[in-house]
Simulated assay, not measured.
Amino acid sequence: MSQTASSHDVLTTDVVIVGAGPVGLFAVFECGMLKMRCHVVDALDMVGGQCTALYPEKPIYDIPAHPSIEAADLIDRLAEQAAPFAPTYHLGQQVEKLTRQDSGRWLVETSIGTKIDAQAVIIAAGSGAFGPNRPPLDGLEAYEGKSVFYMVRRRQDFAGKKVVIAGGGDSAVDWALSLADVAERVYVVHRRPKFRAAPESVARMDALVRDGRIEMVVPYQLSGLDGENGQLTAVRVATLDGEEKALPADALLAFFGLSMNLGPIADWGLDLERSHISVAQPGCATNVPGVFAIGDIATYPGKLKLILCGFAEAAQAAHSIRPLVYPGEALHFEYSTSKGVPGAA
């Protein structure tokens, strides 16, 4: 894996990819298959985006040919897939400025002074700068990072513990399924019986509820925390009618989604829709010529926020960019099964 040091010299490449999450990494592969060089910029000091920073051990179930794969393993495989094309990674820095040059190419400038000249830019920034939506509970700060968490880095940290999981989306359901194997007790708190998660995952959770391995606490919402010195002893929950009860707990996992902040991206003249970048399909082009957006940050009619759709968007963007890098040169498209991987041993 290649990474440049801070430099005030202008570097040159074909494509700059903003975001080193799974979709950004796959864009390196797709561009490489079309013989385009990539530099990748990410504010984190590691590749993988949310998969690495928030839930490296979270199982992902909708990757073709992988009935289940942990997020960190998926990132390792994607980085390995991109490696033959020798991408240059600029980690621990944020793209702050995007300037159209007289040549029509883009000058990308980062927070530590790195400057990159590129024909095109792919924004694969996921949810942008992200942070957890925190439940409005008195005294919450005293427990955060000690017994209240918004992510799971190591599943074994919760082995033998009584865990309360709050939320109704994929993260809540997936971690309930995973922690049921190691925790002493798992409670799932949600304000209504319907979950916003993959139906198959919900069905598996319901089966564990019937088996007594997960206790469903519905319709309740969080109302308070009991404990001392940052260590929980119970999580208090209440119905909308005010009926309360206390769940014995060693840990609370609160999965209420992420707050989204586009940061400098919001100042680049892009068409935005509710903190997402509007793109045209097919091709994932933004309203700014030479700038494309893929993955969770991109939106268009019929958009599905699935990782596999982000992978397809990476391929679409790469094919849209190739005529900019190789103007007038016809592409004789071949499947990877017949052409192999260019430059790979």
Rank of each mutant, 00 (worst) to 15 (best):
V217G: 02
Y187M: 04
I165K: 13
Q221G: 14
Q221T: 12
G230Q: 04
D226N: 08
I165N: 13
K194R: 11
R185F: 02
R185L: 02
G224W: 04
R204K: 15
Q221M: 06
M205N: 02
V163I: 12
V182Q: 15
N229T: 10
A203E: 11
V164M: 05
A183Q: 11
V163M: 10
V218W: 13
A166E: 11
K194W: 01
V217F: 02
G160L: 13
A176K: 09
A172G: 12
L232I: 14
L177A: 05
L225N: 01
A166N: 08
L225F: 04
V235A: 03
L232N: 05
G224A: 10
R191G: 13
L232W: 01
D206H: 08
A246N: 11
A198E: 11
N229G: 09
G227A: 03
V186Y: 14
E228P: 00
K161S: 10
G242H: 06
I214N: 00
V188R: 13
G169I: 09
D211C: 00
D226T: 07
V202D: 03
W175P: 02
V237M: 08
G227P: 01
T239N: 08
Q231E: 12
D211I: 02
Q221P: 00
V237Y: 06
P219G: 07
D206P: 00
V218Y: 13
M205Q: 03
R196T: 11
R196H: 12
A198Y: 13
V188Q: 13
V202H: 01
A234R: 07
G242N: 11
E243T: 15
R236T: 15
V189I: 09
R236A: 08
A234F: 04
G242P: 07
